[in-house]
Design a protein around this nucleic acid. Structure first.
Lengths: 286, 286
DNA sequence: TCTTTTATGTAGTTTTATTTCATTTTCAGT
DNA sequence: ACTGAAAATGAAATAAAACTACATAAAAGA
């Protein structure tokens, strides 16, 4: 948790003098990280040990350690990690908050990912006869995105956001087919059934979902993002973004694994797209 | 500039002993910020003044100040310098690179956005009779995502990734209708034509695209991300992610603008989705 | 009101960082 | 290769900062 936010939140748990310290810091955090303990004590009109005790109350080793934590919470790009949007936020405020919390979410996802599993997934994908991406509701756009990327590899790939088509596709699957199921919570009943159906028909099931969820249990390989669940009505679903980045990672892993010959293929697709453009060089995508 | 990157970049400008310090820090930056100058000097096998001089060479006031800067560059979410994926990167390497460059891209987008324009866009959207999202190719999944979000507001909203349907929809549009066009480069001929068609039929055109592009010129309002264009074959299209976050921002602005009554609507949708789930509380989305 | 607990500050101690200066290394010019 | 200037480095001393122990004051409970 962001130290600055932590101080704000715990303001009322501090003693009288400690609150003075907290207020002095909140008033000008930038100044605080460049002050000595003596200086800050003077600003807050308390004694030095009080400042020190204040630091320890916030689970830091002491004043220097506290400054380190505070500095990190003021660092470029993360002034207000995961701050929720308020009813009275202006465009400036909610825009920063959403961008920043999305970045924080990606960082968490990055740290929580198991690269061995990613490697396994890339393995499985490169050896697949056919790849299918399934998602329902909000996850369907992630599946579409995956389709768009894998389509360029010129391998059999499909994508369905229709439960009936998904089931039909599973029934027709066989060994060597890989089915990638995308679900934020991993608790969508219909999709869990799809996973079962796919496995009954010998397909390999990769799930992009929460660890230990019902869907995860029905899958052969689970890539979980470890992103905290969204709690606020105002807050958008950042986990979806993390899933998309994970798709990017898988695509990249796939490209690298397939080697140089394969990459030429990609270039061809890009060059062709160019022709449908107004002139300007070096562009890709739409 | 990020301190850690700065050290890497300037490695060859340091003297022999100073390089030892640099290498000790790069080897384990997390350890470095928690060490005393004496400790770090011992690890690097140099004297304490050398460490101090090293810090000053990097434009800091001294060792504690340097640690502060270093801590900030290690902070959660800090955008790393865009590094491209290499042919011989392992899963660990390409995963971090992709996540980090995506975060860097979001940070750039955040800084480049004009919140006044966002506010205007939210204005226009809240007053619309009907909203349509159009995208082609890779941008179609962004359009779908937007549909999914705006759909919950219980207002007339549609989404097409088919050029014929897009044109038909434009022809049927009238004053009060808003059409949101999504295109990374803003140079897709067909989509530029769609913009013209929409305006001829009195629709208001919002473009999520590059500034000064042909599409931008045909639109009433342009939201440009200012994200650098993708140059590398291996690199995924991060701008797409930025577009999605921008959709999140617009959705949030929309919700806030519509006020409390409206938010109840959102809750209803969420509660309904719950029922199609395996039991567990507090979940949202799919 | 008295006792106990908690909070706060003073003064001394320890740790940490910086400065000064002597020594070593490097390197250009002979 | 030698010499001397300049730069780099480290030892030791100094200064600064942080921390500890303890004493006193305030607050809370009996």
């Amino acid at each position: 948790m962001n130290t600055l936010e932590l101080i704000k939140k715990n303001l009322d748990t501090f003693s009288k003098s400690e609150r003075k310290v907290a207020e002095a810091i909140l008033a000008s955090p930038e100044t605080a990280i460049h002050s000595s303990i003596a200086n800050l004590a003077k600003t807050a009109e308390v004694s030095e040990p009080t400042v020190n005790r204040f630091c320890r109350r916030l689970d830091t080793k002491g004043f220097p350690d506290f400054k380190l934590h505070l500095a990190q919470s003021l660092a470029n790009g993360t002034p207000y990690v995961n701050r929720n949007v308020n009813e009275d936020d202006g465009p400036e405020a909610y825009t920063s908050k959403i961008f920043e919390s999305t970045m924080a979410c990606l960082n968490t996802a990055k740290n929580g990912l198991d690269t061995n599993l990613i490697n396994r997934a890339v393995d499985v994908l490169t050896q697949a006869n056919k790849i299918s991406f399934f998602g329902l509701g909000a996850s369907s756009s992630v599946a579409h995105d995956a389709l768009n990327k894998f389509f360029r590899f010129n391998i059999p790939v499909s994508c369905f956001d229709d439960i009936v088509m998904q089931r039909m596709s599973c029934i027709n699957s066989s060994e060597g087919d890989v089915i990638v199921l995308i679900s934020h919570t991993g608790r969508t009943k219909l999709l869990v059934e799809v996973a079962q159906l796919a496995r009954e028909n010998d397909a390999f099931v990769i799930a992009l979902t929460e660890a230990n969820s019902p869907l995860a249990e029905q899958s052969n390989l689970v890539l979980s993002l470890g992103v905290p669940e969204d709690t606020d009505v105002y807050m958008p679903m950042s986990s979806r973004i993390a899933q998309l980045v994970l798709i990017d990672v898988l695509t990249t892993g796939f490209t690298l694994r397939r080697g140089a010959k394969f990459r030429d293929n990609l270039k061809k697709v890009k060059v062709d797209i160019q022709d449908s453009r107004f002139e300007k060089t070096g562009d890709e995508e739409y």
